[in-house]
Design a protein around this nucleic acid. Structure first.
Lengths: 248, 248
DNA sequence: GCCAGACTGTCAACGGTTTGACACTTACCG
DNA sequence: CGGTAAGTGTCAAACCGTTGACAGTCTGGC
């Protein structure tokens, strides 16, 4: 491995980082020159499936952008029960504690498949923002949307019955999937590699309970599922279904 | 009503607004001159108990700061079930959609008592931030902490049993109460005017269920309650209780 | 002070979810 | 290409919180 770093010739790894950072909605408010700086400061971090990337409670804060593969955001209780918040795919970012240095991470991150993270050190990222303040509004917007999502989940968990909750969460994942630039495809089918247990952990229910619910939704033609996989064939149909009917 | 506005003599109402805005943690990153501008642009809005301040789904966005009284943040489902997210007291702010103009509010706001809001129009607030960019980091921090809180609630709802959930939420309210400047009192008792039903709506349970849980917590000496009132006598004790024990 | 309305305690019956257990299927790795 | 670990379908029993109903209690406003 040859080390070739000159001030005016970009590091090839940095070029790759740049590629990834460019695909991240959080950073899209920064001008390209700023992204290039970020890429130079960033560090690529490959990972293998099931590797623990960050533990719940860690204080160190970096901004992580998923470059490849997928990452599970989850938290484990003292008695081993696990709750999963969401699944991030390429283009997504996490590590919101960059904005509140010193706060511990509420949820941990685990590799859901093989892949790679591109990480910008927290301080470097904050400095960069300070030097390109025009990026702030976009940053606030992204953060506020994430808050919006979290609150929606709270609402769903409190107001909807099990099929409603599962449906909503799947729809939500499908929308994120689209938004983070996986597809331009307007309303094509989306498949997730999630086991019944993963879904159970997302909803705070059991494997068996999820099974029953999935069968209901499948009966309505709203989803399909097979070994370790769930697919939403038509997001629009699912959305409509979830809007009608009182759903408890 | 005499109109007396000159450029160099502050409007008395504006002086009152300023007072309120100064007490708001979200705005504490802005220099005082900026706060004075904000106060001039702000509008005081008195309210009576149970008045609907904002409905779920509204798009118009302003930054609201509670000047007096308390405000319930909640959402109602089509079949009348209600879910309450939190209770805001003087010094607290809401209307996070200021940061994402065009997004509908997920939750509505209802007056929990008589009181008053001080509202800064969304555009004016955003313009102000742009002119005083040094306030951005603090703003991001506040927003990110709120996200942190929302995620904590999701975690609690998924991982903890009923007493655990209720306890955590009460502790959380008590901490906010302290933080928003009600008391400097390190660990004094805090009382909330919440009916069993309000609590039930926060937790997604029933009035009767809440009753049972409160009795358990009371038995442990962690809370006390009477007609329409719950009090946490010792936050530290409650926190310790919630940390030990596997809690489901 | 008094009264109407809001809030509360309590109980039995009901119902949906979990628990626990077991046999079966699928995917992955050597 | 076969073996093993992970994932899955299914069932009955147990559990826990809800439903529904009613009488009792508190409070604020007149």
């Amino acid at each position: 491995m040859s080390e070739d770093r000159s001030a005016d010739r970009p590091d090839p790894r940095s070029a790759h980082n740049l590629e990834v950072l460019r695909g991240c909605s959080l950073l899209s408010g920064l001008p390209d020159e700023a992204l290039r700086e970020a890429a130079a400061l960033a560090r690529a971090r490959p990972f293998r499936a099931n590797e623990v990337l960050y533990a719940r409670g860690e204080v160190q804060s970096a901004l992580s952008v998923v470059g490849a593969g997928s990452v599970r955001i989850s938290s484990t209780s003292s008695d081993g029960r696990e709750i999963m918040l969401t699944l991030f795919e390429p283009g997504a970012w996490f590590g919101d504690t960059v904005f509140s240095p010193g706060m511990p991470r509420v949820f941990g991150a685990t590799a859901h498949s093989d892949g790679e993270l591109v990480e910008v050190p927290g301080q470097a990222y904050r400095d960069l923002l300070a030097r390109y303040p025009q990026a702030y509004p976009r940053t606030l917007d992204m953060l506020s949307r994430r808050l919006w999502s979290a609150i929606s989940i709270i609402e769903d968990n409190g107001l909807r019955d099990m099929p409603g909750r599962v449906g909503r969460r799947l729809l939500f994942l499908a929308q994120m999937h689209e938004h983070d630039g996986q597809v331009g495809d307007a309303n094509g089918p989306v498949t997730f590699k999630l086991t019944r247990e993963h879904i159970a952990n997302m909803m705070g229910m059991t494997r068996q309970g999820v099974h029953r619910v999935l069968k209901v939704l499948e009966g309505e033609g709203l989803i399909a599922f097979s070994y370790g996989r769930v697919t939403v064939p038509d997001r629009e149909a699912l959305r409509r279904y979830l809007e009608e009917s009182t759903q408890k």
